[in-house]
Design a protein around this nucleic acid. Structure first.
Lengths: 214, 214
DNA sequence: AGGAGCAGTCACCACCCGGTGACTTTCGGA
DNA sequence: TCCGAAAGTCACCGGGTGGTGACTGCTCCT
């Protein structure tokens, strides 16, 4: 964060950094406990055991603190998680690769309750935090595409659109799955997610095959 | 609403019904103006030009008023909208029919700002209003399936899953499209939605053909 | 005619929010 | 050593919230 001189930090500065970290961590704790609607300077300061005034002094206000939080945590499945060890997923045929990435994306979301909370929050609001999240997402997305190109994959336009469509569906279903058990014909338990993954694979295969060989 | 005796309603009761209607309508107005986060007894009462106490007297509180509102408005594309005049969409081949319903679903959502607001709200909260909305949605969904069966369509399991997947994607993209211009490889303007519709059609066709004739 | 009851009004409460000015304590450099 | 500055504390403000008790005045039924 900031640019604290690493060499021999005086006790003063060490203390400050400690409370800064406590505040940032408190954001996560409050978020987990009360969700986004319970997030305020009072709650965060109480959780951190610090005074809320320090939020203004150190971060300029809640948005600044949220920005620091957003940059500190791992909200999104990173490349290792999406592509597996040694980028193994890139070695699959294109259709399987697309499906596998979508599946891993969904699984990564579902095991991050905080990310789901923020994803839900994004649906209804637009503020500093959501902007940070979008930045991070965009970065990962671009890196992913670069990896695929470097691995020699060529995904036709329709395949890329289908990927985005499925990613949107995963986001929505992962968020809603916290509250509801079914959506349309889908059940949102582990078995249901397995079935979703299977159909995603079938759709990718069918669409890309149809494009390649008619 | 309720069951006001149609024959010669006394002026008292007429007045009450009028303010009840005003309160319900005010919910919609506030929702349109300030979104869900600005919805409270104070705002609604002010908008309706009535006293907030009447919300408690007539509806038992905000949740009751929201319930009345949810039952009064047309939030979702109904069967006529999804299937077209004379159920024309049912006459299409199964794959085209599925794609067309998804497209009409998306279009219906996009032209209902209130529905999008509530859809976004649903992502983060669970209360009386969301329960009502889910009831209505479920009812429409079941009616839709009944119509398709009655028209002689047989949709395999994968097709139904794909429909739900696309419906989830449409919900998410329609909601997010209010705030962001792009999602992954999709642009969320009119042209982008046309492309989405095309890919949805291609995916349905590819998946259902692959199932029928391998 | 007249009184009971209901629609509607108003003031008020307690509570929680974000934000700030004034203060005390503690550290560290000249 | 000592003074300035930074860390941290506390009380307070204005404002908005949901919710309620006490009231007026009209209406409708007997």
């Amino acid at each position: 964060m900031k640019d604290g001189p690493p060499e021999r930090a005086p006790r003063r500065q060490a203390r400050r950094i400690a409370t800064e970290r406590a505040l940032v961590a408190a954001v996560g704790a409050v978020l987990r406990r009360d969700g986004m609607h319970g997030l305020g300077v009072n709650a965060v300061a109480a959780e951190a055991g610090a005074d809320k005034k320090l939020i203004y002094r150190y971060f300029g206000g809640l948005p600044g603190l949220l920005r620091a939080f957003g940059e500190s945590a791992d909200f999104w499945p990173d490349l290792d998680e999406l592509l597996g060890p040694d980028r193994a997923v890139l070695a699959l045929p294109t259709a399987e690769m697309g499906a596998e990435i979508v599946r891993r994306h969904a699984a990564g979301l579902r095991r991050r309750p905080l990310t789901l909370e923020l994803l839900a929050w994004e649906c209804g609001h637009r503020d500093a935090l959501t902007a940070v999240l979008e930045d991070v997402r965009q970065t990962i997305s671009e890196a992913l595409i670069a990896e695929m190109l470097a691995a020699g994959h060529h995904v036709p336009r329709g395949g890329r659109v289908l990927s985005s469509l499925f990613a949107a569906a995963m986001n929505y279903l992962a968020v809603r799955g916290r509250d509801i058990a079914r959506f349309g014909d889908l059940s949102l338990d582990d078995d249901g997610w397995d079935e979703i993954g299977a159909v995603v694979g079938a759709a990718f295969a069918a669409l890309l095959d149809a494009r390649e060989a008619p």
